[in-house]
């Protein structure tokens, strides 16, 4: 499969975009996400599957509409749009109206990717751009959580709201472990967090299966392990320090296993396009994200901070890359800094 390469690369060495080709890496990510996705569908029922499908359909339709006819086969065929759709779907609440999921995916591809020049040129993680747009646009729908563990075939009525119409909610809605912690100072048992039978986004609840997928990607060397390692390290250390103060802040294990932490750290922060290329940069990126997550969760207005933490660090990625360039061989030395050699 031929890939569309830019004609002129305007960036300093290293020119290597990590040695792997797009379709193979995409396939690995698909495989790694499969267990957690199936678990989400199992817990939240058919409705969750429909939300995922709507999101993927929105992503595909947008990619198709904005790609010139001559490049459509390659652009659709590399599976990246479909993956963006799936990743976005996994971060949506299971009762979200289908039209919102479709719209979010359209924004993810349109504003998150196509506008920047397509795959490999975007500054921000497209799936998270879509999610940020949805959270800002429909804050109530995005924070109303259909309960897990109901009858599989039962579809929440909110799901089928007509386009541009408000969803009608069941009286039954649940809270996420993070929401319970933030607004009611109530913890959730760790086994439940690992298993995934809690309220939350479709793909974020099952900690154990997400870790399994991450392990698979790690063994296949599909991502830079320093990024998730940095996130976990910073988040665990910061939250441990906070919980030591004894003011009822959640401890490190809860911090790592709740909300979008695992999904974000393993599958979104590691996106090679929007994370730094250098090992030192990857550490900075990971540690910064982990620190920001806890900062937003504990001191911000939102219960969850993973999305904003990753997006903020995405914005810092070009800067991190610039300041962590390895020194050109034979130049500099002594007190010279890397940037002075240019």
């Amino acid at each position: 499969m031929s890939q569309h390469e830019p004609h002129l690369l305007l960036q300093p060495a290293p020119m290597l975009r990590q040695g792997m080709n797009t379709p193979r890496a995409m396939l690995d990510v698909w495989l790694a996400l499969l267990p957690a996705t199936l678990a989400g569908i199992w817990f939240f029922g058919l409705g969750a599957l429909l939300v995922l499908l709507a999101s993927m359909a929105g992503a595909l339709a947008t990619e198709w509409a904005f790609t010139p006819a001559s490049r459509r086969r390659a652009a659709i065929g590399d599976n990246s749009a479909l993956l963006t759709g799936l990743l976005l779907g996994l971060t949506l609440p299971p009762g979200l109206p289908l039209w919102m999921a479709f719209l979010g995916a359209a924004v993810a591809i349109g504003i998150g990717k196509v506008i920047w020049g397509g795959l490999g040129h975007n500054l921000f993680n497209p799936a998270l751009v879509g999610r940020a747009f949805l959270l800002g646009t429909f804050p109530i729908a995005m924070t109303t959580w259909a309960p897990s563990g109901g009858p599989f075939w039962e579809i929440p009525p909110s799901l089928l709201a007509l386009p541009f119409q408000s969803p009608a909610y069941d009286a039954l809605s649940s809270a996420t472990p993070l929401g319970l912690m933030k607004f009611e100072q109530q913890g959730t048992a760790l086994p439940e967090l690992l298993l995934g039978n809690t309220g939350g986004c479709i793909g974020e609840t099952s900690g154990a299966l997400l870790l399994l997928g991450g392990l698979f990607l790690l063994l296949r060397r599909d991502f830079d392990w320093r990024i998730p390692a940095g996130i976990f390290l910073a988040a665990a250390t910061f939250s441990a320090l906070l919980s030591l103060t004894g003011d009822g802040y959640p401890g490190p294990l809860f911090t790592l296993l709740s909300g979008g932490m695992l999904l974000g750290a393993l599958f979104m922060a590691t996106d090679p396009v929007t994370s730094p290329l250098t090992p030192r940069g990857a550490w900075i990126f990971g540690l910064g994200t982990g620190f920001l997550v806890v900062l937003i969760r504990v001191f911000g207005g939102f219960p969850e901070g993973m999305m904003y933490a990753i997006l903020l660090m995405n914005a810092a990625t070009p800067l991190i890359d610039r300041y962590t360039q390895p020194r050109v061989f034979g130049r500099g030395g002594g007190r010279d800094r890397g940037e002075q050699t240019s």
């Binding site: 109206p97 504003i111 747009f133 800002g136 646009t137 429909f138 804050p139 729908a141 709201a161 007509l162 541009f164 119409q165 408000s166 969803p167």
Partner: peptide, 17 residues
Amino acid sequence: PGFEPWVIMILPPGGFI
């Protein structure tokens, strides 16, 4: 009456977008 408002559009980010 059933319209679901796009809150972001009223806010500054909606202006920029």
